[in-house]
Design a protein around this nucleic acid. Structure first.
Length: 222
DNA sequence: CCAGACGTTGTT
DNA sequence: GTCTGG
DNA sequence: CCAGACGTTGTT
DNA sequence: GTCTGG
């Protein structure tokens, strides 16, 4: 599960270089990230999150709703009861909420500097039960969470673009927390292939792997 | 068949 | 639009 | 996780 | 006792 991540504000400015952005909504950056040190996001709060994606005009930064609302959705958002802030990598082809976006190659990256997980209640010792962990990477300040996006038409002809984080089984580092799932973090040399619309879904699926445990840093977050 | 769901974790 | 649960 | 089920077929 | 549905 990955329901909470953050991006450090000062490092957020460096997204331009980090991702080679060609198109960027400057005003939105100034407005949304003005005084914040962190931009924390929770999957159940329907917030806008920053996404990097390839557009016909070039590599762009945008803000999509998290969680994803599939293309067939046409009712008021408040009637959406199912959860879709995470998409199991194993389910992309079989779930009605993800299949279309996945096959249409609507892939994007959610930039982050850390994410948070709680110990699994069933697996954790009593001592660990109340401590949330913050996970960051030793080899990347800003890293890329693999995500897919979609758009739908809401009542009133409003177009909504939205996204979801892809998850895989936990690696050894995450199991120590203990936690059984983790977001897909792309290696830097996999980012272009992930974002490119010319990469078929079958090839993109090869990139959905566990990040190396030895590069992950977890610390109790009080 | 066909009405109803459409999702993931397990402390978002 | 497509899947699934009864 | 934890409460509740613990079974089968799908036009008989 | 173990699976599953929410």
């Amino acid at each position: 599960m990955c329901g909470h991540f953050a991006i450090n504000y000062m490092k957020f400015k460096s997204l331009i270089d980090r991702y080679g952005l060609e198109i960027m909504p400057i005003e939105e950056i100034e407005n949304i990230f003005n005084d914040a040190h962190y931009y924390p996001s929770h999957g159940d709060s329907h917030t806008l999150v920053p996404v990097v994606l390839e557009t016909p005009q070039g590599r762009a930064l945008d803000y999509f709703r998290w969680d994803i609302v599939p293309a067939w959705w046409n009712k008021p958002l408040k009637e959406k009861k199912f959860s879709s802030f995470n998409a199991r990598s194993e389910s992309l082809l079989e779930k009605a909420s993800f299949k279309s976006a996945w096959q249409k190659r609507k892939r994007c990256i959610i930039p982050a500097t850390c994410f948070f997980e709680w110990p699994d209640k069933k697996l954790a010792s009593k001592d660990a039960e109340r401590v949330e962990y913050r996970i960051s990477l030793a080899d990347q300040h800003i890293f890329s969470i693999a995500a897919i996006w979609d758009q739908c038409m809401l009542p009133g002809n409003e177009i909504l673009k939205s996204c979801t984080i892809i998850t895989v089984d936990a690696n050894e580092k995450m199991l120590q927390i203990p936690h059984t799932r983790m977001p897909v973090i792309l290696a830097p040399d996999a980012e272009s292939a992930w974002l490119s619309p010319s990469t078929p879904a079958e090839a993109a699926a090869e990139l959905l792997r566990q990040y190396p445990a030895e590069q992950m840093i977890s610390a109790a977050h009080y």
